[in-house]
C-alpha cells in the first residue's frame, strides 16, 4: 500500500506546455505514472508530447476521468490553477510552483477548507509511491518500494534521506515533500495521520526545518495518536536568528521556531531525533531491526 497515490492514479498536468511542465510530465510518464491529459488555456485540442491538451481542467477531467493534478503554472497564476483543480473536484492537487504570494495562498487555503481536494505544496518536490506513481520533480531512480514513510519540508534534503535508505536496501511506502512556504496544503500532521493508517508503513522519517511551529504540532499529534516509530531531523540547528535561509518558512524570529525547540518537542514524543543528517539511514535500519521480531506496525520504540 501507499498513501494518496498508487498505480491507479490518473494525473493531469496543468501548465504542461511550459518548459518545466513538459520536462517533468515526461519524467513522470517514464517513471510509470498515468499522465492522462494536460491543461493549458488556449492550447486545447492540441497534442503535446503525445498527451492531449485541454483548455480547462473541468473538460480534462470529464474526458479522461483524472483524479489528480500536477501544477507547473507560473507564480502569478498558480493560485488560480489550484482553485481550478479544486473546482473540478480533483482528489489531489500537487503544486510544484515556487514563489506564489502568501496572500494568494491565504485565499486558496480558505477556499479549499471544506472541499474534496487535498493540496500538496506549493513550492515542493511532490509525492512518490515508489514503483507505482510519481507526481513531482524528484529523481525517481533513487527510490525503492518498502516500509518507510518519508515526510519533509525540503527538496534535495529529502533526496539525501531517501538515498541513504535505498543504499541500505530499505525502501519507502510513500515520500511526500510538503513544501517550504509559510502556507501549505498538506501539513506534517495530515501526513502522519495518513501514514498511521497505512499498513505498509512501519517507520516514519520526518524532516523538518527551522521556522514556524509545524514540527511541534507534529510532535503533539504523534504523542496523542501515532503508533509507529519515527526518526526526525530538523535542518537549521546552526542558523542565525532573524535571517531567512532560502525557504520563506526558514526564519527564526526572536527565539521562536528554533531547531532546538523542535528537536526537544519531537524527542519528548519518543522520536529518534538526530543531530546529524548523515545518520538517517542508519537510524531507520536500527528501528526496523527492533520492530522486526514483533513484525507489527505497532512497535513503538
Amino acid at each position: 500500500m501507499s498513501i494518496l497515490v498508487d498505480q491507479n492514479t490518473r494525473v493531469i498536468v496543468q501548465g504542461i506546455t511550459g518548459r518545466e511542465g513538459t520536462f517533468h510530465a515526461r519524467g513522470c510518464r517514464e517513471y510509470g505514472t498515468k499522465i492522462v491529459a494536460g491543461v493549458t488555456p488556449g492550447r486545447g485540442g492540441t497534442v503535446h508530447e503525445g498527451i492531449t491538451v485541454f483548455d480547462t481542467v473541468l473538460e480534462a477531467v470529464e474526458k479522461t476521468g483524472a483524479d489528480a493534478s500536477m501544477i507547473f503554472v507560473p507564480p502569478a497564476a498558480a493560485a488560480d490553477a489550484i482553485l481550478e483543480a479544486a473546482d473540478a473536484r480533483l482528489k489531489l492537487a500537487v503544486c510544484i510552483t515556487e514563489g506564489i504570494p502568501a496572500s494568494d495562498m491565504v485565499r486558496v487555503a480558505a477556499a479549499l477548507e471544506d472541499g474534496p481536494t487535498r493540496l500538496i505544496g506549493p513550492n515542493c518536490p511532490g509525492i512518490i509511491s515508489p514503483g507505482k506513481c510519481k507526481i513531482g520533480i524528484m529523481p525517481g531512480y533513487i527510490h525503492k518500494p518498502g516500509p518507510v514513510g518519508v515526510i519533509s519540508r525540503s527538496g534535495t534534503l529529502t533526496y539525501e534521506a531517501v538515498a541513504q535508505l535505498s543504499k541500505r536496501g530499505i525502501g519507502q511506502s510513500t515520500c511526500l515533500g510538503i513544501g517550504g512556504d509559510p502556507i501549505i496544503g498538506t501539513t506534517f500532521v495530515d501526513a502522519l495521520a495518513l501514514f498511521r493508517d497505512d499498513a505498509e508503513t512501519r517507520v516514519i522519517v520526518l524532516i523538518g526545518e527551522i521556522g514556524g511551529g509545524a514540527e511541534e504540532e507534529a510532535a503533539r499529534y504523534a504523542a496523542r495518536d501515532l503508533n509507529k516509530p519515527m526518526v526526525a531531523f530538523v535542518a537549521g540547528q546552526t542558523a542565525p536568528p532573524g535571517k531567512r535561509m532560502g525557504h520563506a518558512g526558514a526564519i527564526i524570529a526572536g527565539g521562536h521556531g528554533t531547531a532546538a525547540e523542535k528537536m526537544a518537542a519531537l524527542q519528548e514524543y519518543g522520536a529518534r531525533v538526530l543531530q546529524s543528517p548523515a545518520e538517517i539511514g542508519e537510524a531507520v535500519e536500527a528501528l526496523l531491526r527492533e520492530a522486526a521480531p514483533s513484525a507489527g506496525a505497532r512497535g513503538r520504540a
Binding site: S152, R153, S154, G155, T156, L157, T158, E160, G180, I207, E209, I210, F233, A235, G236, Q237, T238, A239, K243, M245, G246, H247, A250, A259, Q275, S276, P277, A278
Partner: peptide
C-alpha cells in the same frame, strides 16, 4: 549546496564535526 534544506543540513554537520560555516549558499 543545492537546495535550502540540504544547505542548512550541511551547515549543521560542519558544526557538528567542529567547524564553523562561513555562509549559507543555495
Amino acid at each position: 549546496v543545492n537546495g535550502a534544506g540540504l544547505a542548512m543540513a550541511t551547515m549543521d554537520i560542519i558544526k557538528l564535526v567542529g567547524g564553523e560555516p562561513a555562509n549559507f549558499l543555495d
